[in-house]
Design a protein around this nucleic acid. Structure first.
Lengths: 211, 211
DNA sequence: CGGCTTCTTGATCCTCTTCAAGGGTGGTGG
DNA sequence: CCACCACCCTTGAAGAGGATCAAGAAGCCG
């Protein structure tokens, strides 16, 4: 594990709005988020943007670039952030020597695939309210895992970016948040979110009537 | 490479309708499709199915299971198929000894992630016609890669399964195919598809008017 | 403070879903 | 070999959910 830490020498700061990498750039390294918040998005040939993920401390980014030796999406910092650069060729070598590391890598990539399948389920099957509820609960869980409050947090992304991720227009996101607030499920004050009834949110997700 | 082939001893037949694996089953092996056609799908807590992929010869399946040591989706054969079982622990060991194999694995998993991002773009941004066009062109390309005709092929899945994959209802899929046929882009005869105007299909995808 | 981006909310429109019915196809068993 | 049955597909009509268009308000940054 020392060997791993030797690689991740110094943190690399990314200012809000700046790109960690962009689609088309040659692949050199993976990046572990140390601090901050980033989004990744792909752009279709005709210019439509799809946000493919939001990333926070502990997340590993750039795995999409392994297959084609080029990044396939843009990674943009949504707030001032810091990442560790993990040169991929070094990681490969090291993971051959350290079975646990190799396994870890496989698992991280696998988790990404599973997570993407979850998003596909969301995009393919869910209604707007369910999508937004799923989004809030997912964020909540991830903040909790990192030791932050699971019920009160600051959204780092715009309504438009949420909408892009969820396959909705920004107006729909805004309306849905307002409706949740009217129903007493959450409190919204611009980008400040408080989940006041997590159970009810989960019921929205599971399509349960107020039984 | 001999060592790899030693692992993949005999093919394992899967009859149409049978499951190669099911969500929740413990993870033992990855599977390389030798022959045939399968689908994978995840089921939400409240029972909705989302088809996450269609798989044909050469595809590697089961990578979602690495992260949690359990399969997270069902894999069902849509026609009589044959797969090779690749015990994962063996593959791990071997990939430590053979750098090219390790790299290959990383690439395959990365490709899966990239492909999923493409589906997210499709589900999040595209209209029904664009989705169906993208679907047909994707199948076309994959058949071509495998040496089959890129313009005439047999769909192994039902309209409902296509719809689930594309985030549409089966009626919408059926209507869209009919419309494409009326417009002279394709010929449909039940599950037999012929692409008669690939260029026009690509224009549908890119949202171009008949300029 | 001023300008800009972002957010909210309303009204209308459009696409896809839902509901419904009929017809076709393939597979099975007599 | 033919008939039957279950499943699948097509098509129509009505309805709903979200998109689009539009305007104004609020927050943020320089």
């Amino acid at each position: 594990m020392q060997a791993v830490e030797a690689l991740v020498t110094q943190g690399m700061p990314i200012k809000r709005g700046d790109a960690l990498y962009r689609a088309g750039e040659p692949f050199k390294a993976l990046y572990a988020v140390r601090l901050g918040f980033l989004k990744t998005s792909v752009i279709s040939e005709d210019g439509r943007e799809q946000v493919t993920g939001f990333h926070m401390s502990g997340d590993l980014m750039g795995m999409d670039a392994i297959s084609g030796d080029r990044h396939t999406c843009d990674a943009i910092a949504l707030e001032d952030s810091e990442v560790c650069e993990l040169p991929f060729s070094d990681m490969e070598k090291l993971s051959r020597q350290i079975p646990a590391l190799q396994r870890h890598f496989y698992k991280v990539m696998s988790r990404e695939i599973v997570s993407d399948h979850g998003v596909m389920l969301l995009l393919g099957n869910m209604k707007a309210e369910e999508r937004v509820a799923a989004f809030l609960l997912n964020l909540s869980r991830r903040f909790q895992t990192r030791g932050y409050s699971s019920t009160g947090f600051h959204l780092r992304m715009t309504r438009e970016e949420i909408g892009s991720y969820l396959g909705l227009k920004l107006e729909t996101v805004s309306r849905t948040l307002s409706r949740f607030q009217d129903q007493g499920l959450i409190k919204v004050q611009n980008r400040l979110i408080e989940l006041t009834d997590v159970c009810a949110l989960k019921q929205v997700l599971n399509n349960e009537q107020g039984a």
